[in-house]
Simulated assay, not measured.
Amino acid sequence: MRYRRPGLDIASHALLILALLAFCLPVWLAITAATHDQASLYTGTAPLWFGEQGLGNFHAVLSEPVARLGTDVARLLFNSTVMALGIACGKIFIAILAAYAIVFFRFPLRRLCFWLIFITLMLPVEVRIMPTYKIAADLNLLNSYAGLILPLIASATATFLFRQFYLTVPPELLEAARVDGAGPWRFLKDILLPLSKTNIAALFVIMFLYGWNQYLWPLLITTESDYMTIVVSLKRLLSSADNLVPWQAVMATALLAMLPPVAVIVLMQRYFVKGLVDAEK
């Protein structure tokens, strides 16, 4: 039943419009600032309209090495994309196998193994950063894509979510697969994975954003500009020392850094929402 309350509708729409303006204003200021030159950004007034540079600042940071970074932004975007995709796919792959083993295989201390995995949720990267760095250094993983990805691909959260979903799979489905001669790998590939598509899509979005927004670990593991990520490099652009901060390059880089996560969310929004609200959750 829908109640007709004109005053409440007007107030609700006004609140939504104000919230939209509050969200869009910083993005608009970043877009306009990215189209000006450095001199116009130090006049004491934030520009509210496009400048004469147009897309020139975007082309400059993408095609030419930025002085403070030692490389171009296109390389940084590539590094961040590789890291985010590697972390997302690695977390999902490991979580699926771990949850599959815990739910469908009977072995000693099975429940204890799950709780040991679950307890790792209380150990964030910051707590185990030093031993993780020591192991990565001993294995010669510094300044490499493997060093950026491998220490972050285990996920207790993803394992827990897949376990909860697999517990809802009817036992009769497993028995029918056995009668048809399906082994463990075939049951996983032909039955469980198709049933898990929405879960995988939802977790992929979450884990991709997690990997894209990583700051501390890439900051420690990389010292060469060829392996640095866009998030770490934004901070380096803001370190002015005795020089003026190139705000036009900072804003152009920040806007480019927003594009891949936004694209992932927009393209997978339908699957993401479905994966979170399906009845079996």
Rank of each mutant, 00 (worst) to 15 (best):
residue 151 P to A: 11
residue 116 L to R: 05
residue 111 R to A: 13
residue 138 D to F: 15
residue 117 I to C: 12
residue 175 E to D: 03
residue 112 L to M: 15
residue 150 L to R: 09
residue 141 L to H: 08
residue 138 D to S: 14
residue 114 F to C: 05
residue 161 L to S: 01
residue 125 V to K: 14
residue 128 R to Q: 06
residue 116 L to W: 10
residue 164 Q to W: 00
residue 122 M to W: 14
residue 153 I to Y: 07
residue 165 F to S: 09
residue 131 P to R: 03
residue 173 L to T: 07
residue 160 F to I: 04
residue 118 F to A: 13
residue 132 T to L: 08
residue 165 F to Q: 02
residue 157 T to Q: 10
residue 140 N to T: 14
residue 111 R to T: 15
residue 107 F to Y: 14
residue 108 P to D: 09
residue 107 F to C: 11
residue 169 V to F: 08
residue 164 Q to P: 05
residue 170 P to I: 01
residue 139 L to N: 14
residue 135 I to W: 13
residue 117 I to K: 09
residue 147 G to I: 04
residue 138 D to E: 15
residue 139 L to T: 03
residue 143 N to H: 09
residue 162 F to A: 02
residue 126 E to I: 09
residue 167 L to S: 05
residue 166 Y to E: 08
residue 151 P to L: 11
residue 133 Y to D: 04
residue 148 L to H: 05
residue 127 V to Q: 11
residue 141 L to T: 01
residue 123 L to G: 11
residue 132 T to A: 03
residue 168 T to L: 06
residue 131 P to G: 05
residue 130 M to P: 07
residue 161 L to G: 00
residue 108 P to I: 02
residue 169 V to G: 01
residue 135 I to K: 13
residue 136 A to Q: 01
residue 116 L to Q: 07
residue 120 T to E: 04
residue 146 A to K: 03
residue 150 L to V: 13
residue 151 P to Q: 00
residue 164 Q to N: 13
residue 112 L to G: 11
residue 142 L to A: 09
residue 155 S to I: 03
residue 128 R to Y: 13
residue 164 Q to L: 00
residue 141 L to Q: 05
residue 173 L to I: 14
residue 162 F to G: 01
residue 126 E to D: 09
residue 146 A to L: 12
residue 145 Y to W: 07
residue 137 A to I: 13
residue 119 I to K: 00
residue 173 L to F: 11
residue 168 T to P: 04
residue 161 L to C: 02
residue 162 F to L: 00
residue 152 L to H: 01
residue 115 W to D: 13
residue 127 V to D: 07
residue 158 A to V: 06
residue 124 P to D: 10
residue 126 E to T: 08
residue 144 S to Y: 11
residue 162 F to E: 03
residue 108 P to K: 02
residue 128 R to P: 11
residue 141 L to S: 07
residue 167 L to M: 15
residue 158 A to E: 04
residue 169 V to E: 05
residue 153 I to M: 07
residue 134 K to I: 15
residue 133 Y to E: 01
